[in-house]
Computed example of a mutant assay.
Amino acid sequence: MEMRPVLVAICLLLVTPITGSFWTVGSQLVMDPMLVCKKTRRLKGKLADICRKEPSLLKEIAKGVQVGTRECQYQFRNRRWNCTTVRRSLKKILLRDTRETGFVNAITAAGVTYAVTRACTMGDLVECSCDKMTSKGNRLAKFARTVEAKKSLPTEGDWEWGGCGDNVNFGFKKSREFMDAPYRKRSDIKTLVKLHNNDAGRLAVRNFMRTECKCHGLSGSCTVRTCWRKMPPFREVGNRLKESFDGAAKVIPSNDGHSFITEGPTIKPPGRFDLIYSEDSPDFCKPNRKTGSLGTTGRQCNSTSPGVEGCELLCCGRGYDTRIVKEKVNCQCRFRWCCEVTCNTCLVKKTVNTCR
């Protein structure tokens, strides 16, 4: 399936203020990520600068949206809501303020941070480069104060900062400028929740950087090590945000009108890494145009699993149909010297269960 048009739609939905008139125009902007800039001529501030002066950065941002979407679909592949990119569903999800909305915002902000940072390291952006930290640099002093940094710093032997680390601060900054700029002057509950979840996604990348080192010395000895900072694999970012999704806290507006509090007095106030929401999620069992639910009819399930991917839960108690399908697989593989593997093609039967 061609993903690019719907991913562009996600990008547009995430960076444009939620207004009734936007959805009329935004539904047509599905062919080019640059349209987020071309169709919004009254842009101001940092977002306008990116649109008008940094087209290469805009391309990396679009890649980041794809990174986030693929990870979202992986994390929710076995759940009733499977992070579908079908526009009639996703648009409704993003209009609401559920757990699912929070995860989409967080993983997309993380994906943009990740893609822009990686582009800096690879030299694909003229606006930035890799992060060349030094033992006397201010960046090191600031970084070393974080808890995760102290856990990952080398504890044995002599070492020094060097090499070409990931410039995550640049990626963090550009993700915030592009995704948060349209909402900075608003203080309604949906905006506060969105900005919080965006930051939680970015922090899942920046605050979990790891240290990598290379040895220097004669005959393979490790007299001195040069170390640099590297982003975690994005799968780890997705896993971390998925855990936050499972433990997300429901919030309500506070009396001052500029912040939020948890719905119940016994609920622990959310931290910067936690995801939050203000609306309960639908059950996603049946199609519902109002909520964006596509239902689970036709989804494949696992009849032997008691978990969320099991037929009982995924099919919402409606039952499931079973059929036997045949598929071609490689079999009877042989290794031939040197260096070739030859296989036969076999037909195997596979049981497929689908929700009614």
Rank of each mutant, 00 (worst) to 15 (best):
73 Q>V: 03
74 Y>D: 01
75 Q>S: 06
75 Q>R: 13
76 F>G: 14
76 F>E: 05
76 F>K: 10
78 N>T: 14
80 R>K: 15
82 N>A: 07
83 C>Y: 03
84 T>A: 08
84 T>W: 06
84 T>I: 13
85 T>I: 06
85 T>H: 05
85 T>P: 07
85 T>A: 12
87 R>N: 14
89 S>N: 06
90 L>T: 00
90 L>K: 00
91 K>P: 13
92 K>V: 12
92 K>G: 02
93 I>V: 05
94 L>K: 00
95 L>E: 06
96 R>I: 00
96 R>N: 01
97 D>M: 01
97 D>I: 03
101 T>A: 15
103 F>L: 14
104 V>Y: 15
104 V>M: 15
107 I>G: 01
107 I>V: 10
108 T>I: 10
109 A>H: 07
110 A>I: 04
110 A>Y: 09
111 G>T: 06
112 V>E: 13
112 V>I: 11
112 V>K: 10
113 T>P: 02
115 A>M: 15
115 A>P: 04
116 V>S: 08
120 C>P: 07
120 C>E: 02
121 T>W: 10
122 M>E: 12
122 M>C: 12
122 M>T: 09
124 D>L: 14
124 D>H: 06
124 D>Y: 11
125 L>A: 14
126 V>R: 15
126 V>D: 09
128 C>T: 10
130 C>F: 05
131 D>H: 10
131 D>S: 11
132 K>N: 04
132 K>Q: 04
132 K>T: 07
132 K>P: 01
133 M>R: 02
133 M>E: 14
133 M>I: 14
133 M>F: 04
134 T>A: 09
137 G>H: 13
138 N>V: 09
138 N>E: 05
138 N>I: 14
139 R>N: 15
141 A>C: 07
141 A>L: 11
141 A>F: 14
142 K>Y: 12
143 F>N: 08
145 R>Y: 02
146 T>Y: 15
147 V>H: 11
149 A>G: 15
150 K>M: 08
150 K>R: 04
150 K>L: 12
151 K>H: 10
151 K>G: 12
153 L>P: 03
156 E>W: 13
156 E>P: 00
157 G>I: 01
157 G>Q: 07
158 D>W: 10
159 W>E: 10
159 W>Q: 11
160 E>P: 08
161 W>N: 09
161 W>I: 02
162 G>D: 15
163 G>R: 11
165 G>L: 00
165 G>C: 00
166 D>Y: 06
167 N>L: 01
169 N>P: 01
169 N>E: 02
170 F>Y: 08
172 F>L: 02
173 K>T: 15
175 S>T: 11
176 R>M: 06
